[in-house]
Computed example of a mutant assay.
Amino acid sequence: MTDIIASLPVTYELTPHHLHERLTAAAEDEGLLDVAYRTLDTPVGSLLLAATEQGLVKVAFDRQDHDAVLAALAAAISPRILRAPARLDAVTRQLDEYFTGGRHTFDVPLDFRLARGFRLSVLEHLPEIAYGHTESYAEVAAAAGSPRAVRAVGTACALNPLPVVVPCHRVVRSDGSYGQYAGGEEAKRILLTMEAA
């Protein structure tokens, strides 16, 4: 990285912000940026967004401790992580549109490397639950091919690496109560109320 810094042409005095932007661009150009991240303020609190070159890999609520999430991404994917908002421009724009009621589905590349097996089958089904609708854990289990795996659906939703974008908030208990949610019950209530309006 010091070679990258030394090779940056200095045409004006660099502020820390400009230096960070130039380092980010140089790291991206050199193939040294494996995970880019940024945060976004939303009606459900600050969201950490992280993306690989393949697509969005992680969405985390503030209550999940963003620093701990970044450390887990470094261990699971690569330690070459940098705050690089530009890679996340499309998902940021779509989330802004979603939270203002102008978008009902997301159209960004997703990197599902943090989910496998049955959990991945559940996550692949979740976008099929239409905006403004919900399904029970039992209905999702049946749709994912294992009708008896209701608890496993709950676990898959709880460990969903891409909440909001992959709408696990649309999965509720058979009695209609919310159930657990990574962002907390209040965040789930906000999302479902917003979608029902």
Results as ranks from 00 to 15, higher is better:
110 L>C: 11
111 D>K: 03
133 H>T: 13
102 G>E: 11
148 R>A: 01
128 E>R: 10
132 G>A: 11
146 S>C: 08
120 L>D: 01
124 E>V: 03
149 A>V: 04
121 S>K: 01
114 L>Q: 01
146 S>T: 08
128 E>I: 05
154 G>V: 03
132 G>N: 12
134 T>Q: 10
124 E>W: 02
144 A>C: 07
135 E>T: 13
141 A>R: 02
136 S>L: 15
108 V>E: 11
126 L>N: 09
134 T>C: 08
116 R>H: 07
137 Y>W: 12
129 I>E: 02
102 G>K: 12
108 V>I: 14
149 A>R: 07
127 P>G: 14
115 A>M: 02
113 R>I: 09
125 H>E: 06
139 E>L: 08
104 H>Y: 05
134 T>A: 10
149 A>C: 09
113 R>K: 04
112 F>V: 01
142 A>M: 08
126 L>M: 13
145 G>M: 02
106 F>W: 09
133 H>M: 12
126 L>Y: 10
150 V>S: 11
133 H>D: 13
136 S>I: 14
140 V>W: 00
121 S>E: 02
120 L>A: 03
137 Y>G: 14
119 R>L: 04
105 T>H: 15
146 S>Q: 10
154 G>K: 00
104 H>V: 06
123 L>Q: 00
148 R>F: 04
139 E>C: 09
106 F>L: 05
147 P>R: 15
149 A>N: 09
104 H>R: 09
145 G>W: 00
130 A>I: 11
110 L>F: 13
125 H>S: 02
138 A>E: 10
140 V>Y: 02
154 G>C: 04
119 R>F: 07
105 T>D: 15
151 R>F: 13
122 V>I: 10
152 A>C: 12
102 G>Y: 09
118 F>E: 05
127 P>I: 13
121 S>M: 01
126 L>W: 09
115 A>S: 09
111 D>Q: 06
120 L>N: 02
113 R>F: 06
112 F>W: 07
142 A>D: 09
146 S>G: 08
153 V>I: 04
140 V>A: 06
128 E>A: 12
150 V>T: 15
116 R>W: 03
137 Y>F: 15
140 V>S: 07
123 L>A: 00
148 R>E: 02
147 P>L: 15
135 E>D: 13
118 F>H: 08
142 A>K: 11
129 I>K: 00
107 D>K: 15
145 G>F: 02
131 Y>P: 07
106 F>H: 07
105 T>R: 15
151 R>W: 11
109 P>W: 07
111 D>C: 05
137 Y>N: 14
150 V>L: 13
